[in-house]
Design a binder for these strands. Structure first.
Lengths: 221, 221
DNA sequence: GAGGCTAATGGCAGCCACTGACACTTGACG
DNA sequence: CGTCAAGTGTCAGTGGCTGCCATTAGCCTC
């Protein structure tokens, strides 16, 4: 209540309805499965009509990504705040980690962190949602590429390096998310650790002779 | 007619129906748009019932990816055939290029190359199709990671490098496809050239000081 | 080459996601 | 308080997709 004047009753009501819809949707999705949940059920749980649901969300999927969207926006802010002396990949890496560290503050007004983590897992394991997730990620990547290009004073379309760097970073993050979601530790610390571990492997993975160089930790092969 | 004995009339008929459905679907998609085309229209163009369409394809999308699927299978074969002395990224690079070079032989029995290229473009520009495309790519990546791990005699789950290498490669390929599809040159040579150009940028993009090192070609910034 | 088996197909009823149109309710504001 | 607009509910309709059952058409055997 210091940046915005005062929301007004109408706005507050809208926000409450929307948050309730998101909560109900995620709760249902994570318990009965995404396809096993109908829009009517979500609407009924919040006591609004199906039509109203579609006034808040363009589709059933959109409700599933509402919270993720908040964290992505926050991530972009964090990248913007990284000091200019850091290399692109370094800045991205620190921003991601910071994003995990501040996750709770970002989303607590809508849902508890635990439900969000289960949602993340659901997305990775539901083909229809995974597809949308990947497309959304592609959009995010484009924004990131522009940010990085700006940081380095380059033209995104003239110099391929911003997009390539982001593609590399993003590709590794995907592998991380996938591995995390199929493991048994669903905690935030778990994905934080995985993130650093995989990012550290980019250099070695691009080296020519894998077997000769060996990895850092014990490896019997 | 040397590997397989003889398909039998029933099988041939099925194959013809399927190919006809793919052709009709792609023709309609690329001319009227994906969402602007109904399954009934596709079925009617081939003179079968809507129900039959869904016996050949699990969904409307699947018809859009039928040809792409063939090229991906061929690509995997090419990767398998790369000599063991090549580094993972080198093998992947050569396999992709070879795949473009042999594209026509791979798909000519179903549709002309030109229609395939327009389909590719359609996929990249249609959100619903792009989403599915990216998920399919993720599945392909997983197979690739296993192939690479096998090549190098590693365990995919113990060593992160195969997945990371594939993620990097795949990320770059995505940027390539996106750039190609939004350009004006829809030719195969065009995407071939772009492929090599972008893959050559992986090294430079990961370097620390972008501005100091500069790019290889003229750059006024 | 007649008859039986099974795969392939068509037609139909129904579910669900989603949309447009219209009428009704309810904050906002002079 | 009355007007206006934003928000909501209802309903009818479209399109993707599935299950069920009846019908057709290759295939195989005698």
């Amino acid at each position: 209540m210091d940046t915005l004047p005062r929301p007004g009753l109408r706005e507050r009501k809208k926000r409450r309805t929307r948050d309730a819809l998101v909560r109900a949707a995620l709760e249902l999705f994570t318990s009965k499965g995404y396809e096993g949940t109908t829009v009517d059920e979500i609407a009924e749980a919040v006591d609004v009509s199906q039509r109203t649901f579609f006034r808040y969300f363009a589709g059933k999927e959109e409700a599933a990504f509402a919270v993720l969207e908040m964290t992505e926006a926050h991530f972009l802010d964090l990248v913007r705040e990284r000091p200019p002396h850091e290399s692109p990949l370094e800045a991205l890496r620190r921003a991601v980690l910071e994003n995990w560290d501040t996750l709770n503050e970002t989303i607590e007004s809508v849902i508890p962190v635990e439900l969000h983590m289960r949602t993340f897992q659901l997305i990775e394991s539901t083909p229809a949602l995974l597809a949308v997730h990947l497309r959304r990620t592609a959009v995010l990547e484009e924004k990131l590429a522009h940010l990085i290009a700006e940081r380095e004073g380059l033209d995104v379309d003239a110099d391929p390096r911003p997009r390539v760097a982001v593609a590399v970073f993003s590709g590794v993050m995907r592998v991380t998310g996938q591995r995390w979601s199929t493991g048994d530790d669903i905690s935030v610390e778990s994905i934080r650790t995985l993130t650093t571990a995989y990012l550290d492997q980019v250099g070695p993975a691009l080296a020519k002779g894998w077997n000769v160089q060996g990895k850092t930790d014990g490896d019997t092969a």
